[in-house]
Design a protein around this nucleic acid. Sequence first.
DNA 1: GTTTGTGAACCACTTCACAGCC
DNA 2: GGCTGTGAAGTGGTTCACAAAC
Lengths: 233, 233
Amino acid sequence: MPRARRWLGFGSVVGVTVPGRHLPEATIARLPRYLRALTELAEGDVATVSSESLAEMTALNAAKVRKDLSYLGTLGTRGSGYDVAILLGRIRAELGLTREWPVAIVGLGNLGRALALYGGLPARGFKVVALFDQDPDKWGEKVGGIAVSPATDLADIVSSSGVEIGVVATPASAAQGVADRLVGAGVTAILNFAPLSLSVPEGVALRHVDLSTELQILSFYQHQRSRHRPPVL
Amino acid sequence: MPRARRWLGFGSVVGVTVPGRHLPEATIARLPRYLRALTELAEGDVATVSSESLAEMTALNAAKVRKDLSYLGTLGTRGSGYDVAILLGRIRAELGLTREWPVAIVGLGNLGRALALYGGLPARGFKVVALFDQDPDKWGEKVGGIAVSPATDLADIVSSSGVEIGVVATPASAAQGVADRLVGAGVTAILNFAPLSLSVPEGVALRHVDLSTELQILSFYQHQRSRHRPPVL
DNA sequence: GTTTGTGAACCACTTCACAGCC
DNA sequence: GGCTGTGAAGTGGTTCACAAAC
């Protein structure tokens, strides 16, 4: 089996101040949590924060916070903690949130609609610029100010509008076809809400959010609780 | 720091055929994927399946599939594979899906509504039995056949209807209060869609789904791609 | 021949614990 | 004295590779 190696990143290319490279995936997945906490602190005009209190806000532990942040460089000050504004900027930069990302949503059922109308996206630098559905009744309808287009126009619109991130909110049966079309149109990151495992070419980033899966995991712990000892998580 | 130990489960209590205990958490989180694949196979009247093809369907690898399934007991047959029906039953049982779980959803904004109307839940044994919102305009309104109740009635309704799993779909500002009330009413598993880290007493299972977080992770990889080498995931 | 089940090796991530700096 | 940054130790999870079973 080929087993493509994941990340491979490393230090800077000649003199750019990119510090400790190869962020562990687990760390990457936590950066948004730090971001949230820091945003809150910044809004409350808190100037500095210790790893201890950041840990509390994010429900992590201080050692993990320090280790994670140390991958981004030497950002703290011993004795006093981290400067909120600096850390915020550094994490934003690391996550690529200094620019706006145009996003396309495919599938305007209840979920797709909810996503299209979700105010948290624009607030965080994601701009929904295109909506698609295969149902002719929906074409032209505006959701959150954006008109719904036929799924057949996906390739044209996506490539012309520079969308690189696609959200799949179709039923399972349509999802793989949609993913293929998104990839064909140049999308290189997909967030999948359909209840199946999509397959995408290597090089396309893929994340999967599934309500039923989450509930089933909770169900496991509930069930466990009733059988043996109280679990946690 | 106390650091409560997680799971602690072990073998059977006197002669019951509970095989290899202490499922790794990572395995638990994958059981729903196997379940999905097996359900599909069963619907197509496929009688047996190899770890290899199950791996393909779930986008995992065969070794992981076998290791995971081996925790559930000796379910396969060397030379021919796994019996779909048996495996399906075993995973359902492990996940506690042989009963129906009543679920309450708190917060009927766009997302809460979408969740309440999502057909995938009843299909998988989760029954939405109560809806709550703090907006008086919504009280009495029926969503998916269930009337929306005032959030103040939460404790009464939840405890009387036997809800053990709660879904938080409120804005961030209300979420912690809602979680506290759910826990107070006896809920021991919470699925949180609000964009903040909830804190719950030890012993309450908690999972967090956050759209913005997912997009930010994708943003990281996109950004990375533009800076260095093509990543994957 | 095919495919499972599983020790052993490997790797990623977490936590500890303390030196180093403010 | 307080708090970060980080090697080292510990833990959990994945992959390998092969003997055992059909």
